[in-house]
Design a protein around this nucleic acid. Structure first.
Length: 448
RNA sequence: GGUCCCAUCGUCCAGCGGUCUAGGACACCGCCCUUUCAAGGCGGCGACACGAGUUCGAACCUCGUUGGGACCGCCA
């Protein structure tokens, strides 16, 4: 524990790519663990791979975390007492401790590198908060493929520390007391424990998270499609949903609750309740979670989020009032599982053009058209332009003319929306307003 | 090949020795509602990998088998 006993965790990505799903998952659980207890969440950039690290990637990662709503308390952009927060800016620290290891004879030089001698015969016990006790012999902590013991490089020939050395130094120096990371790091942990031991430092608590797998049950990677969190934004997923969905991978708040916000998750989060089994990333479930969040989202916020998707479709939401667009989305209800779909399915509220493109006159026979013309002529002169009035009028008319509601509701929907599917057609008509309805019906020759 | 890890419906989670003829959610399939489609309601399909133990009793404990995964870089 840190001096004041509070949780100090960190998310330590290397800026060699965008924030991907696996990283986001790890960051999320670190964040939850910090937030549930008023702890500190630190962002540390592990840029010791000078060739592949870029400032752009560092920015994308930070943007990705912000998008997900994972805010950090200390980091390269905001500083903090334990800074600097980029490993490339902490070189003196690594050198200092490498020298210490050199002096104590636990490490040696080879070329320009510093190599830690892997001890033999030490029993290591990793007490993982999720995986339980994992025992391993020190000589097995670092091996070559042929099974021989391998010493551990801690400073590379280019003077940069290796990952296994830098993490240990930084986690110790930054007073990190919980190391929460992916399960793929379990095999690295013994190596790191050896370094803690050599430097006579106390090890932090460890918690390894189950991997996230693709449908083929292999570690999630580029070939599984979307990897960057921003791709999910582009596909129409809300940050709230991605957060919610990711939190559900390996953990559940209990009580059958599946839809929740960040605060609720943080309140009930428990590392000990995280399961060990790797989880398959299931798009169907993400879609469901997204739809649920869309349902409970404030209309004003929803409108703001959907607007760019309408624009993307070549529509012009800016010509409508905020209220109109909000009403349209409210009317849409749970139709559409992504903001992308929602924008698409509601395009006729924004512009008439997509309706014209979709409309096919052959859907309606000449005889039908004659009947419909008679109906619409009366329909348009309804005194009160209210959906209930329209429906009552339509039902009444159908009854006296021996027609079914379908016979007029379907063509009306077709002419107004260019779709076979929409919210209640009279509500759509009400919102579009009499002028717009007249215009559309006229255009398709349902009115003279 | 070596080291380590994992193992409940197709998928995500419940279960932590008896209340399990194993529960919920997603997906899928029916039915209802209905001007369409969602939503909603009701119902269905569907799993403790296998084998030995331990125990009065095992999805839960132990061992083995099988299957899957991760890691074995002067990448992180």
């Amino acid at each position: 524990m840190s001096k004041d006993g509070k949780v100090r965790v960190r998310f330590a990505p290397s800026p060699t790519g965008a924030l991907h799903i696996g990283g986001a998952h790890t960051a999320l659980f670190n964040w939850l663990w910090a937030r549930r207890s008023g702890g500190t969440f630190i962002l540390r950039i592990e840029d010791t791979d000078a060739l592949r690290s870029t400032a752009e990637y560092e920015d994308t990662i930070m943007a990705g975390l912000k998008w997900l709503g994972l805010d950090w308390d200390e980091g390269p952009d905001i500083g903090g007492e334990a800074g600097p927060y980029r490993q490339s800016e902490r070189m003196d620290l690594y050198r200092k401790y490498a020298d210490q290891l050199l002096e104590s004879g636990l490490a040696y030089r080879e070329d320009d590198a510093v190599i830690f001698k892997t001890p033999v015969g030490v029993n290591l016990v990793l007490d993982d908060a999720i995986y339980g006790e994992i025992k391993i012999q020190s000589e097995k902590a670092s091996m070559s493929p042929d099974g021989s013991v391998k010493d551990i490089v801690i400073i590379k020939r280019d003077g940069m520390p290796t990952y296994n050395f830098a993490v240990v130094v930084d986690d110790h120096e930054m007073d990190i007391n919980w190391v929460i990371r992916g399960e793929d790091h379990i095999s690295n942990t013994p190596k790191q424990m050896l370094i803690y031991r050599a430097l006579e430092w106390e090890t932090p608590n460890f918690a390894h998270l189950p991997m996230i797998l693709g449908k083929d049950k292999k570690k999630l990677s580029k070939r599984h499609g979307a990897t960057s969190v921003f791709e999910y934004n582009d596909m129409g997923y809300l940050p709230d949903s991605v957060f919610n969905f990711l939190a559900l991978l390996g953990w559940a708040p209990g009580g059958g609750v599946e839809i929740f916000d960040r605060g609720t998750a943080a309140k009930s989060f428990e590392l000990s309740k995280v399961i060990k089994k790797p989880a398959v990333f299931d798009m169907d479930k993400l879609n469901f979670v997204n739809q649920e969040h869309l349902k409970i989202m404030d209309p004003a916020i929803k409108k703001k989020i959907v607007e760019p998707f309408w624009a993307e479709l070549g529509l012009h939401p800016e010509k409508h009032s905020e209220q109109y667009l909000m009403d349209a989305l409210t009317l849409m209800g749970a139709r559409g599982r992504t903001t992308n779909e929602l924008a698409m399915f509601s395009d006729y509220f924004v512009d008439f053009s997509p309706v014209k493109e979709r409309y096919d006159a052959s859907e309606i026979s000449p005889e039908q058209r004659d009947t419909l013309k008679k109906f619409f002529a009366l329909f348009m002169s309804i005194p009160k332009w209210k959906s209930q009035e329209m429906e009552a009028f339509a039902r009444n008319w159908c009854e006296t003319n021996g027609a079914s509601l379908k016979e007029i509701a379907l063509p009306l929907r077709w002419a107004l929306t260019g779709r076979k599917v929409s919210p209640g057609v009279f509500e759509v008509a009400q919102l579009l307003g009499p002028d717009e309805c007249r215009l559309r019906l006229k255009h398709f020759n349902f009115l003279d």
